[in-house]
Simulated scan of single mutants.
Amino acid sequence: MNKKNLWSITIVLAISVAILYIDLKATPFKQIIHAASSMNWSFFGLIFVMMLLSYTCEALILSVLAKRKGEPKRGFWSFFRIPIIQTLFNAITPMSTGGQPAQLTAMIQMGIEGGRATSLLLMKFIVYQICVFLAYVSTIATGFHLVKTKFSTLAIFIVIGLLIHVVSTLFLLAIMFAYNFTKSATIFLMKILRKIFPAEKVDKWQENAISKIDTFYGESRKLKNEKQKLLKVTFLTILQLLLFYSIPYVVLLALNVHASWLEVTQMNIMITMIMAIVPIPGASGGAEYSFQTLFSTFISSSGTLVLGMFLWRLATYFFGIILGIFGWSIKPKKISSSKIN
């Protein structure tokens, strides 16, 4: 953990503490104490169990993808530390840009060769991106009316977040199913950009883009050829997302607030869309504001609402940071892929 990462954690904590201070200042402390005193501690514990299960699903996804003839057997901790390290670096970098490189480093530390580690992460990313895309589209189709009339400002950000994800996912699907067209379209786009930007710079962009297109296409073909593995990974990814997206519902149950699981989960998915476009580590500020705005639909007491927001961020954000620090610190035994058990 270098100084830059420590500074990122400090900034995130400072923003979160400032937001919590503002909330506490605006909300009578007695209301928060009252909400906490009547909390259902069984559901409180379940919140963190579900987060651990979500990380476990992701670890199993990597384990399934890594399994092949001649691949050495590695312990559960080797795979489990990868998603928690990803969570840590997603939390402390703008737009969650640090998660992928951190995962790659963690896989190399456990003895998986860099090229193969990149391949495994790409396959996981392809399945995850498509599953999240389907979750976003189905939520907008069935639940957007929940925010359109009451929270028009947030609705705009939700649409922007969705559009960004739709464009990136459609591009990914185009690579998988229209490889030649996508490659030709990219080269045509670069020709246009050469009229605006220096040719040398655009040449580098084109080389990088074509390389990534080729890599994605190659990994997508591998996935399509391993249908049993693909089905297992898809199932685990859906389970992982269900666990994660259901956390706010369990938070409400912990606070003795009863609501529709479907509506609460739809709200949470829309919050995730907003968080995707907040250019601050961990989407600090935007996440808390979005949660309180959207979940005021289900919670009438301001004290309960603030406590619910704190529990949600504690479980989905700070809990992951704490686990990620341990994961980064406790390295697994390095087992080279050349060592066959």
Rank of each mutant, 00 (worst) to 15 (best):
176 M>N: 04
292 Q>W: 02
74 R>V: 07
208 N>S: 09
94 P>L: 13
337 S>N: 12
120 L>H: 02
219 E>I: 07
300 S>Y: 07
65 L>Q: 02
123 M>W: 00
278 V>F: 07
224 K>W: 11
3 K>T: 09
136 Y>D: 00
73 K>Y: 14
92 I>S: 14
335 I>V: 12
68 R>Y: 01
113 E>A: 14
141 A>V: 03
45 G>H: 06
83 P>D: 04
65 L>Y: 07
293 T>L: 10
36 A>W: 07
213 I>V: 15
261 W>D: 00
59 A>E: 13
198 P>M: 05
317 Y>L: 01
319 F>P: 12
304 T>L: 08
128 Y>D: 00
258 H>G: 02
197 F>G: 00
44 F>V: 02
188 F>V: 13
246 S>Y: 11
203 D>Y: 03
288 E>H: 13
125 F>E: 01
217 Y>L: 09
271 I>N: 00
128 Y>E: 05
127 V>R: 04
310 F>L: 15
115 G>H: 14
32 I>G: 04
90 N>I: 07
175 I>P: 00
272 T>Y: 04
317 Y>I: 05
340 I>S: 05
279 P>S: 06
204 K>I: 04
49 V>G: 14
172 L>Y: 11
202 V>E: 03
312 W>A: 01
225 N>V: 04
139 T>E: 05
214 D>I: 12
241 L>G: 06
200 E>F: 11
305 L>R: 04
208 N>F: 08
53 L>Q: 13
161 G>A: 09
80 F>A: 08
47 I>K: 05
260 S>C: 07
187 I>H: 14
323 L>S: 05
32 I>R: 01
172 L>W: 10
300 S>K: 01
315 A>R: 05
82 I>N: 09
247 I>S: 06
160 I>V: 09
131 C>H: 09
338 S>N: 15
22 I>P: 08
147 V>Y: 06
315 A>V: 14
261 W>G: 01
202 V>N: 03
313 R>S: 02
177 F>T: 03
93 T>Q: 13
74 R>P: 07
263 E>L: 08
104 L>F: 13
22 I>Y: 15
142 T>F: 04
78 S>I: 09
273 M>V: 03
196 I>C: 11
198 P>N: 10
165 H>E: 08
164 I>A: 14
240 Q>D: 12
324 G>Y: 05
163 L>H: 11
119 S>F: 03
142 T>A: 09
53 L>T: 13
11 I>W: 02
302 S>A: 15
32 I>F: 03
94 P>C: 13
334 K>V: 11
280 I>R: 03
272 T>N: 08
16 S>K: 14
225 N>C: 06
210 I>N: 10
108 I>N: 15
140 I>Y: 07
298 F>T: 00
282 G>D: 01
64 V>P: 07
164 I>D: 05
193 L>F: 09
305 L>N: 06
282 G>Y: 02
125 F>A: 01
100 Q>S: 09
306 V>G: 04
47 I>W: 05
46 L>A: 02
203 D>A: 11
224 K>T: 10
87 T>D: 12
285 G>Q: 12
202 V>T: 02
293 T>A: 07
95 M>F: 15
20 L>T: 15
49 V>F: 12
294 L>T: 03
152 S>R: 01
163 L>R: 12
57 C>S: 13
20 L>E: 02
320 G>A: 12
184 S>R: 15
172 L>C: 13
283 A>H: 03
93 T>P: 12
